[in-house]
Amino acid sequence: MGSPKNDSASNDAETKVQSEPIDRSKLMEKYGIKEMNEDDVDELIDSYSGGSLNEDDVEKIELTLMNKIKKSIFGIPKIKGTEVMVFLDSASEISGDINIIIEYERKGLLSRLMGESKDIDNLRRQVINIVQIEIKKSFRKFPEIVDKFNINVEIN
């Protein structure tokens, strides 16, 4: 294998014996053909694989996502405190668990009687929405990744 199989090929093989070896870089220059640089190659392959992640990368993403979620949750009125834990799994595709504990400023007795549980449900929904928005913002190119996260919200 490795040699042309028709007449033109054998003619060229004869020429090859007679002529000087061709300088590859000069040839590339002559035809304006460029090599791909390492960064372009890596970028292309990352775009296919979704990027390879090592443990450090995973930790950085967890921390960044955690801080972003925390900051957003504090934007909700009557939140006294929050604890956010992000656990990523990047074994095959990125997925993860996000656990959130929220300290909520309780209303007065009357309001509680009027339906605090409804408020808590609304708050839980609001928090989940915020988390999903932050995930989508963080993985802009792969918004569908949001479905791979389990979001648990505990309100105290």
Binding site: M1, G2, S3, P4, K5, N6, S8, A9, D12, T15, K16, S19, I22, R24, L27, M28, Y31, I33
Partner: peptide, 18 residues
């Protein structure tokens, strides 16, 4: 030419189809 293609791609030419 076949030789030029082989040099640029740095792989052997397996076949030449007219």
């Amino acid at each position: 030419t076949i030789e030029e293609i082989e040099t640029i791609l740095e792989v052997p030419v397996l076949a030449v189809i007219p």
